[in-house]
Every structure is written in structure tokens, then in C-alpha cells.
Design a protein around this nucleic acid. Sequence first.
RNA 1: GGAGAAGUGGGAGAGCUGGUUUAAUCCGCGCCCCUGCUAAGGGCGAGUGGGCUUUAUAAGCUCACCGAGGGUUCGAAUCCCUUCUUCUCCUCCA
Length: 414
Amino acid sequence: MIDLKYLQNNFEEASAKLQKKGVDAATLENLQKLFTSLKEANATLEASKAEQNSMSKLFGQYMREGKDITELKAKVDANKEAMVPMQEKAREAEEALYHVALAMPNFPDESVPEGEDEEDNVELRKVLEPKEFSFKPKEHWELSEINGWIDFERGVKLAKSRFSVLRGEASRLERALINFFLDTNAQKGFIEHSVPFINNSAMLQGTGQLPKFEDDLFKIDDEDLYLIPTAEVPLTNLYNDEILTEKELPLLMTGYTPCFRKEAGSAGRDTRGIIRQHQFNKVEMVAIAHPAKSQEVFEMMVENASDILTALGLPHRVVELCYGDLGFSAATTIDLEVWLPGQNQYREISSISNTRDFQARRAKIRFKDGKKNRFVHTLNGSSLAVGRTIVAIMENYQNEDGSIEIPEVLKKYM
RNA sequence: GGAGAAGUGGGAGAGCUGGUUUAAUCCGCGCCCCUGCUAAGGGCGAGUGGGCUUUAUAAGCUCACCGAGGGUUCGAAUCCCUUCUUCUCCUCCA
């Protein structure tokens, strides 16, 4: 959640930032008003409560002293009645405020490039040259047919469209990749975690998926539970509502989980293959960092993900997202896009974000800074999306006959 | 899934026949004092979140928080309802 005090005290600056993220001025003015009226409603109610409390204390005293209480009782009854509408008003004001505030996206960093959509993202650098093929490289689904790696039809039969099954060598490759990713992350200091793939609504609100993006999630019927869309949710929320010591920071975590996304495919993109599925595997990095150190951690995470691609021999580019392409919770995001020769384009394979204190404020993750409690910064990034890595290996390591080589670093894992 | 019991401040643990409890006490913690020395003793302090005020690198006042959410009452840690969690015993099971 954004800092409402900041919004109130620096309205012009704050609204300029959020307007670039598609929030109109009227919504922000409304938010500011709601914040003010909540404070007013609470002030009135609390003054009345204070009076009620002090009168109630007199009650005990009077009774011990054997004094008459009828007059006091009448006063206190009247005050209680007067509080009812105040209470109602305060409750409504709070509800109205949070309804709007929780749907407000994060402020982008100053450094984020201007722009509307992915066309305006800024390429920072390219790593490794795409290899020249002496034949026309095939797309991964064509290669899948030749090698029998992916069973789309039976995946659909088991669940529904946009589910699939990996078979044989492909399944082993997936397992090898997961292990390789986890081991590499561990070497960089990320502690491996194995977490629940189902989380409750409070956790999803903590990281920003709820309440605004409920339609993107698979919900468990009759339960306050959702399939996680990314390990960012359980890993970040491990420290939900906790106060850490400064010494513990940064907390570096990694974990493998499947990810479940209901929205995948709603735009009709990538209908063939396993680029966009309702369920996919991912190894995630999450960091909880001291605000002064989060940028440093962010760069380390980008470096790590890029190094993994390099180790796999996969050409990729590092792209900084512009305002318009930035996600809801992110203050700044860098994507890694891997080269897919079959598609003849770069495709996103990792997304690394610093949310600053946006998630920390929602999830109440703080640390002791001297005597004071301050919000931490939270960061997350894929290292890497497993399914898309398989696609990248298939297309980059294909031979003319459709057979696929296994990258050198993975051989010890298979 | 069934039956019973319990959830209190960093930990332990009273209170739970509703009103000096603004949560006792112990341990642990921080600072200080005393003591010629890894001991003992003494004093002080300390939770979280929000609001207001001011002589504003801080202080004062106030509201809420005894698992969570409702309710009864002038007043709730204490009574009622719902819910979550833990423990014990069954049941089931990888």
C-alpha cells in the first residue's frame, strides 16, 4: 500500500507519479478526502470514548463509596447513545478508505523510464550472441512433436486448456533445471525454502494480488484459500506481521513452486506451446532488505538470474520496464528476455522487482531501526521460470533433425 | 473427521464468581549505582498500531490491542456467539 501520509503532504508530486501509472487525479483526490474524513471520524469517536471511559471509572468509585449513581447513569447512557452514529461513521469511513487505498498501485522510482507499454521498455544490455543456424530453426512445439516431450492433448484432458504434460527426457530436464537453479541461488546466499502452494487471503493481500486481482487467481471452493500465482507470495509473507532485527537483514530466500494463474491466455496470446499456461514451475528469489541496501540487493538479483542464463548458454537481453509496463506492486522492474530462435524474438523469462516498502506496508514487515520500527524493502525475481527455460533450451540447442542437445552445466543433474 | 482441554506482554505464569489490573509475580533484557576484580546486591526503564497538542533531533494527552471477529454491559482478559490455532485421546493416512 502507498503511504497515505506522503500522499497527503505531497499531493502534487504523488499524483504526478501515479498518473503515469494510469491513476486519474479524481481518484487520488477522493483517496485524500477519504483519508481526512476517516481521521476526523475517528477523532470525534475517540473523544467520546475517552469521556465514556472516565465516567465508567467513576461508576466503580461511586459504588464503593455508596454514592447515588442515577444521575451518572443517565449521563453515561446518553453518551453511549450518541456514540452509535459516530461508530457507524468511522466504520464506513475506514471501509471506504481501504477499498480505494488497497487498489492503488505503487509509486514508480524516479529512475523508471517514461513510456506507455512494452514497446517503450529500455534495453540495458545484451548477453551472448544468438547462434547462427544453417537451417530454419523450429518452434518448440514442433520440436516437441519430434521428440515426444510435451503432451498437450492429455494435459487438457486431465484439467482444461492450457495445461500440459512433460514426458521422459523433458520431465527429467525440468527436474534438472529446478535443481540447478536452486543450487546456484544457494551459492549466492539464498536460503532454500519449501512452502505451501496454497495461501490464505491475508497473505495474497500482503503481496498485492488481492483484492484487486482476485479474478487472476484459482480459489479453493468454500475456503479462504488460493493457489499461489508465484512463490513470491509465500516467501515474502513468511515474515508477515513480524518485526525483524537489523542484523537479520537482508533475508535472502529461494524456493521452487508451481505457479497457478487463471488469467493466462485470456488475451489470446501464445495459444500454442507452453509459453503461457495456467500452471507452470518457477524458482523464485525473494529478499527482505534494509531500505538503504535494497538497490544493491536488486542489482545482485538481476546479476544472478542473468548469470544462470549465461551458464546455460542462452542469449538474452536485460530490459528495464517503463512506467506503463510496470506491475501493480513494483517500484522498479528489470526483465530478462531470452532469445528464442524458433520464434525469432526475445521473450520474458525472468522479472525482478523492487517493491520498496509497498508490500512491507501491506504485510506489516518491519525491522528495528534503533528504537523505531521501520518498514523493510521487499524484492522478488524469478531465477528462473522453468517452463520457458525448457522452451529456450529446445529452440537454442536444436539440431537440424529436431534432436536437442543438453547444456553442459545440466549434464551432472541428469 | 470425532471427543475433551487450552490460547494472556521477549519467555514462564497469575487473574477468568465483570469495576484502584493504567495485566500481579518470576526469568530474561537495557541503562545506572554499589562492590577491587568471570560472584552477589540495589535503583530505574522497557510492547504494538493510530490520532491530537506543544516551548517539537523530544515530550504530553488520548484511542485500540489479553489468538481473531462480533455481541451483552455505564464498564469485559473476565460473560455470550462465531472462527482459527495448539495439546491429549480416538479415527484416518503418505
